[in-house]
Simulated assay, not measured.
Amino acid sequence: MLLALLLCYCAFTALCLAMPRHHEELLGHKPSARRRQGLKLSGWLLLGLSLWAAISEKGWSFGLVDWCAVLMLSALTLVLLLPYRPRLALTMAGLSLLASPVAAWALN
């Protein structure tokens, strides 16, 4: 479930950065339309990959339940970090994106 958690957190951070308000708050400038589209696309792709990771690890029945739990945990973490530690939220997204290949390798 670690891989699904890492991918979900990255996905929610990308979807968060696709919003002009959060992008300006975290990075200091408004995103271009092309960047917003890229962030939305990558966020949704990462959510799809996290679903695949959860299902491939535990099967359809338990994988979907675990994926819903991972979705809630990663969203809650991001929502709690954004107002108080916005830079930590970005740092954690970068670290989880870097750690996800290691978690994928550990599955095999």
Rank of each mutant, 00 (worst) to 15 (best):
Q37F: 12
E25V: 12
K30V: 04
L64I: 06
L41H: 02
S96V: 04
F12W: 13
L98D: 10
L80F: 11
A99V: 03
L90E: 00
G63M: 04
A89S: 10
L71T: 00
L82W: 09
L97S: 05
L3H: 03
R85A: 15
P83F: 11
R36F: 08
L78T: 03
E24S: 12
V70Q: 02
C16P: 05
W105Q: 08
S96N: 14
V65C: 07
P86I: 10
K40P: 06
L7A: 01
M72C: 13
L26C: 13
L88Y: 15
H22A: 15
W105T: 00
S61T: 12
G43Q: 03
V102T: 14
R34C: 09
V65N: 00
W67R: 02
C8R: 12
L46V: 08
P101H: 01
A4L: 00
G63T: 11
M19A: 13
G38E: 10
G48E: 01
L76N: 05
G38C: 09
S56A: 14
K40L: 15
Q37N: 11
A93E: 07
L49C: 09
L5T: 12
V70R: 01
V102A: 15
L17N: 08
G48L: 07
Y9I: 05
L49M: 00
R35I: 10
S61A: 11
P101W: 00
L90F: 02
Y9E: 07
K58C: 07
M72Y: 09
W105I: 07
L39D: 03
L39Q: 07
A53Y: 12
A104D: 00
T91M: 14
L78V: 08
S32M: 09
A69R: 12
S74W: 10
E57C: 01
L17H: 11
P20N: 00
C10G: 13
S100E: 05
L90R: 00
V79F: 12
A11F: 03
L5C: 03
L41M: 02
M19L: 14
L71D: 05
S50D: 05
S96H: 06
Y84R: 15
L88N: 10
L73D: 04
D66G: 12
G43V: 06
H23R: 09
